[in-house]
Write a protein that binds this DNA or RNA. Structure first.
Length: 755
DNA sequence: GACTCCGATCTTTTT
DNA sequence: GATCGGAGTC
């Protein structure tokens, strides 16, 4: 067990303490994954624990497979039989075995967030409720929050507090929608993500024999990222480890950033109260970052009240100061970040792969991307739309899903008129309402559609049903790949995409091919014993963008990484740029007004700062386009919360500094003697253009590069680039006072000036 | 039922 | 600025 020698004392103590409840508080960069993997390895090869008796829960597939690989390198093949996976996948596995006790067949479909929201939308529509009030997002979040706190629809409807709450928000029908939603999911033989947790809890609560079985099976339970668990996850884990109490949770309260998804930081803050015998291990030595970064991060998180006491330190070098970049606009911010990256790359022999640019919202990426492209700096964006969320992929999967689960309402809605077969939303609504009113299943109704729809639609539906039946037959006779290929071809989707020769169309066609490749890979993989379509579908519903993104392209050392701060948790880079450090953007305006949770935003900033190993750059702009409007921006309050001795202002650009060292007059300096931002905040006038009297939009068919134009809002400018052709023809115009804009020519009212 | 146009909408998102 | 969805038209 020489691997123990590579650990420091607290790490080692945490690893060899295997029995009884324990909590490992792992500060940023303190070697958490290493401790987790060694702890499991130690259980197996020092304590002789059967890997089959270890349950290790994570939040992402990526974390689970990484850990499995790393344990594999220590203990070998045995690592494969550990029960290790995400909460959702492990619970789904348990439910597939046991769901009949809850009245669900084991081959239930898993609804993703899109499916859930569109089901909610149709319920709102059917009940003729105001869809401005009952927006899918709001209803979904409300129901999801209830389930995460283990509140059933019955309890929800019996509790006057929720009713009063909803009534006050003008949404008294939420309880009813919740009930109908659960009902419809049940009829569709489907569970949503939250149901996987809720139903697992219900299963254990209602059937003690099953609970006993799993309590006996799992001698050791470990939970990663414990600060992000919700009540349902916490209570299930607690139940499972109730008998032996060999529970070990690992996390960092300072990095709890998912409350909007039901995560409850109190699970970690109060864990000690629930387990009097709890042993607490604190990993406080940071191996990742310079002293400057560690201390700056500490000075930020210090402001939070709700936190566990710890003292994160490092023996690493002092390192460079944090560099503050101030820009006059979002596009200038992009330019400055890009040129700084370029200089640092040359000066410090950086690989672009060692650089990350982090932002609060996805929409911020655009101005950065523009600048990087202009400087020929390669980049990749992590996150965004995942492979399995793309329309064409979801369409094919819906065909496959529906062929195996004929009552899957959401898949039915997706595919019934795709490709067009003359069955519109009106007919579909009639069928679904018909099924629900007559207490029939969806499949029963579409097998005999005549009473519900017109003759023409009925004939089309008959043909559709016959096709689905043939697909189902394929699925039982052939392996997943062959069955899926037949479905893609015979459904007509592949053909439709093939005929679409636009750039997007070709892309979609390739994506479908890519999906088929993935299915082929699944079938060919030795470890997958069950090669049926059914088995593949069960696997795939819990995959996400992060999982498939790695597969798509191997990491390129010469690419800068762009992503949201949320996506960056757990990662580290030599240089990190946190852009958009502006009040209302970060901390986010919405977060503050709707939930008044400044502390979580601060933790998010803490996460961002601690991603960097060597040097951190913070940038902000004094004006920024948001939703097409130019807004004045104030520097983020978080910039003032960092001890200013750790910051230096980037002086290379002369126009940056004028506001930074003005004498203090108004704002309190809250703790630090010198303050970078105190002083009068002169907001710059937003420029406005008054169109010239004879402004008359010109015909833009012959617009070319170099022409001068006038725009009613942005004033005068010069065309610098013409994009694509046809209906979506775009022009990039450099406006004299508003910078570069891309205009859609079918909409934009441009006047071509006499050049 | 399919298509077009214009107005409303817009945080983060491991599953 | 981009996208989605409702209303209106063919």
């Amino acid at each position: 067990m020489e691997y123990l020698n590579s650990l420091n004392e607290p790490q080692k103590a945490a690893v060899i303490n295997s029995d009884g409840p324990s909590m490992i508080i792992a500060g940023a960069g303190s070697g958490k994954t290493r401790v987790l993997t060694y702890r499991i390895a130690y259980l197996i090869d020092a304590k002789g624990v059967d890997p089959f008796r270890i349950l290790a829960l994570t939040f992402t597939n990526k974390a689970a497979s990484e850990m499995r690989d790393r344990i594999g390198t220590v203990v070998g093949n045995e690592a494969r039989s550990i029960w290790m996976g995400t909460f959702h996948s492990i619970f789904a596995r348990i439910l597939r075995f046991e769901s009949e006790r809850l009245g669900y067949p084991g081959n239930f479909t898993i609804y993703d967030t899109d499916d859930s929201k569109s089901l909610l939308k149709s319920i709102v529509k059917e009940r003729a409720l105001d869809d401005k009030l009952y927006k899918p997002n709001i209803v979904y979040n409300r129901i999801s929050a209830a389930k995460n706190r283990l509140i059933s629809w019955q309890e929800y409807n019996n509790n006057p507090i929720y009713a009063a709450d909803d009534a006050q928000n003008q949404r008294p029908e939420i309880g009813t929608i919740y009930k109908i939603y659960q009902d419809r999911c049940y009829k569709a033989n489907a569970m949503d993500f939250d149901d996987l947790l809720f139903n697992t809890y219900a299963l254990f609560k209602q059937h003690t024999d099953i609970l006993n079985k799993y309590q006996q099976r799992f001698h050791y339970v470990m939970v990663d990222e414990f600060q992000d668990t919700n009540l349902a996850q916490y209570l299930i884990v607690k139940m499972l480890s109730n008998v032996r109490e060999n529970i070990c949770v690992v996390g960092d309260d300072a990095q709890s950033i998912y409350s909007f998804r039901g995560a409850d930081i109190h699970n970690i803050l109060n864990f000690e109260k629930h387990f009097p015998d709890l042993k607490v291990f604190k990993l406080e030595q940071n191996y990742r970052s310079t002293k400057t970064i560690v201390n700056a991060a500490n000075s930020i998180i210090l402001k939070n009240k709700a936190q566990l006491q710890k003292n994160v330190w490092t023996s690493n070098i002092e390192g460079d100061l944090i560099e503050l970049i101030k820009a006059n606009s979002d596009s200038e911010e992009g330019k400055l970040v890009a040129s700084t990256i370029f200089e640092e790359k040359v000066n410090k022999q950086m690989q672009l792969g060692e650089v990350a640019i982090l932002y609060r919202t996805n929409s911020q990426s655009r101005s950065i991307e523009d600048a990087l492209r202009r400087m020929n700096i390669k980049y990749k964006i992590v996150g965004g739309l995942s492979f399995y969320q793309r329309k064409e992929i979801k369409d094919i999967l819906a065909y496959l899903r529906f062929s195996l689960n004929n009552n899957d309402e959401q898949s039915f809605r997706r595919i019934i008129n795709l490709p067009k077969r003359g069955i519109g939303t009106t007919s579909v609504d009639k069928l679904i309402v018909g099924a629900n009113q007559n207490n029939l299943s969806l499949w029963e109704v579409i097998n005999n559609p005549k009473p519900y729809v017109g003759a023409r639609a009925a004939t089309a539906i008959d043909k559709f049903v016959a096709m689905i039946k043939s697909f189902a037959l394929e699925a039982t006779r052939k392996d997943a790949f062959e069955a899926a290929s037949v479905v893609a071809k015979r459904s007509g989707i592949l053909k439709e995409l093939y005929e679409d020769k636009t750039v997007e169309g070709v892309n979609r066609y390739e994506n479908v091919q890519e999906l088929l490749n993935a299915i082929k890979e699944y079938v060919d993989a030795e470890e997958n014993e069950d090669k049926s379509l059914n088995s593949f579908l069960q696997e795939v519903s819990l995959l996400t963008g992060v999982d498939s993104a790695d597969k798509e392209k191997a990491d390129d050392d010469e690419q800068v990484t762009l992503m949201t701060i949320h996506m960056a948790k757990g990662l580290e880079y030599r240089h990190v740029y946190v852009v958009g450090m502006e009040e209302d953007l970060f901390p986010s305006q919405m977060m503050l007004s709707s939930r008044a949770d400044l502390e979580e935003e601060r933790r998010l900033f803490y996460v961002a700062v601690t991603r960097s190993k060597e040097k951190l750059f913070l940038s902000y702009a004094t004006s920024r386009y948001r939703y097409g409007r130019l807004n004045n921006c104030e520097p983020s309050r978080f910039l003032e919360e960092i001890d200013p001795t750790f910051i230096r202002v980037n002086q290379k650009f002369s126009n940056f500094t004028e506001r930074l060292y003005q004498p203090s007059t108004s704002r309190s300096t809250s703790g630090y003697s010198s303050n970078l931002f105190s002083g009068t905040r002169k907001t710059q006038e937003v420029k406005k253009h008054v169109p010239s009297e004879n402004f008359e939009p010109s015909d833009t068919t012959n617009l070319t590069r170099g022409m001068r134009v006038e725009h009613p809002k942005f004033g005068f400018g010069k065309v610098v680039k013409m994009d694509t052709e046809g209906a979506n023809r775009k022009a990039k115009v450099e406006f004299d006072n508003f910078g570069e804009k891309t205009l859609l020519l079918s909409f934009a009212k441009l006047k071509i000036l006499d050049n």
